[in-house]
Simulated scan of single mutants.
Amino acid sequence: MSGWQHFAIASAFFAGLTALFGKLGVAQINSNLATLIRTAVILGMTALIVAWRDEWEPLSKLSLRSVMFLILSAVATGLSWLFYYRALQLGPASQVAPVDKLSLVFVIILAWLFLGESLTWRTAAGGLLVLSGVLVLAKS
C-alpha cells in the first residue's frame, strides 16, 4: 500500500467514528452548536500539530490562489458539517452516513469536469456501485 492509502484508510476509520460520536453528541445539543464545538476542537488540535511540527509559514509566502481555494474549501466543509450534524440529529447514523458518502460520486464527477481527471470505466463502475450501495443502505 502507498502512503496516501494508509492516510485514506485512517481517514475513513475516523470518519466512521465521527458518525458514531456525532450522533451521540447531537442527541441533546443543537446541531449548529455541536458543529461549532467540533470546529473549535479541530482548530485547536490542528494548531497544536502545526506548532509541534514547526510548520508555520509567513503570510507573505502563501499563494493567494491557494488561500482562496482553502477558504472555499472551508466554507464547503462548514456547510457539509452543519447539514451532516442536522441529518444525524434527525435520522439514524446507519442511514445518514451512507448518504453522506455520496460525496465520493460527486468528487468523481466534479474531478472529471473541473480537474480534468480521467473518467475510466472502472471509476464510473465504482461510482455507480457506491450509488447503488447508498440507495440500498439508506432506504427506510
Score class of each variant (00 low, 15 high):
140 S>E: 12
91 G>Y: 13
133 G>Q: 11
67 V>Y: 03
123 T>H: 09
47 A>E: 04
22 G>C: 07
131 L>R: 08
54 D>W: 03
7 F>G: 04
55 E>K: 11
56 W>I: 06
59 L>H: 06
104 L>N: 09
77 T>H: 06
13 F>Q: 00
84 Y>L: 07
89 Q>V: 05
17 L>A: 08
78 G>A: 09
14 F>E: 00
4 W>V: 11
88 L>P: 11
125 A>N: 03
72 L>I: 15
41 V>F: 01
42 I>F: 01
56 W>D: 03
104 L>W: 08
122 R>L: 15
110 L>Y: 05
83 F>W: 01
5 Q>W: 10
55 E>D: 06
91 G>T: 06
102 L>Y: 09
102 L>W: 05
82 L>C: 03
15 A>P: 00
14 F>A: 03
124 A>K: 08
97 A>Q: 12
135 L>I: 15
10 A>D: 02
125 A>W: 03
3 G>V: 10
19 A>T: 13
42 I>D: 00
83 F>D: 00
87 A>E: 08
38 R>F: 04
24 L>Q: 06
138 A>G: 15
29 I>S: 01
87 A>R: 05
73 S>M: 09
94 S>M: 11
7 F>C: 12
54 D>R: 13
58 P>E: 05
82 L>D: 07
137 L>D: 10
111 A>N: 07
32 N>I: 14
106 F>S: 13
11 S>L: 07
101 K>F: 14
37 I>D: 00
115 L>M: 06
96 V>Q: 07
116 G>Y: 04
30 N>H: 14
97 A>M: 10
136 V>I: 15
25 G>R: 01
36 L>T: 09
6 H>E: 02
58 P>R: 08
51 A>N: 03
32 N>D: 07
123 T>D: 10
17 L>R: 02
64 L>F: 13
128 L>S: 15
116 G>R: 01
44 G>R: 08
98 P>R: 09
121 W>V: 12
58 P>I: 03
131 L>I: 06
40 A>D: 01
119 L>C: 05
91 G>N: 12
119 L>H: 04
75 V>Y: 04
90 L>R: 14
85 Y>C: 01
38 R>Y: 02
108 I>H: 04
110 L>N: 04
39 T>N: 01
9 I>R: 06
20 L>A: 13
5 Q>Y: 11
12 A>T: 13
52 W>R: 06
43 L>Y: 09
110 L>H: 04
131 L>Q: 10
82 L>Q: 10
11 S>H: 04
123 T>F: 08
120 T>H: 02
140 S>W: 14
82 L>G: 02
86 R>A: 13
138 A>F: 12
94 S>D: 10
15 A>C: 10
43 L>A: 13
101 K>L: 11
137 L>T: 10
65 R>L: 14
108 I>D: 05
86 R>D: 13
84 Y>Q: 02
43 L>D: 01
123 T>I: 15
25 G>Q: 00
124 A>D: 04
42 I>V: 14
23 K>G: 04
79 L>T: 11
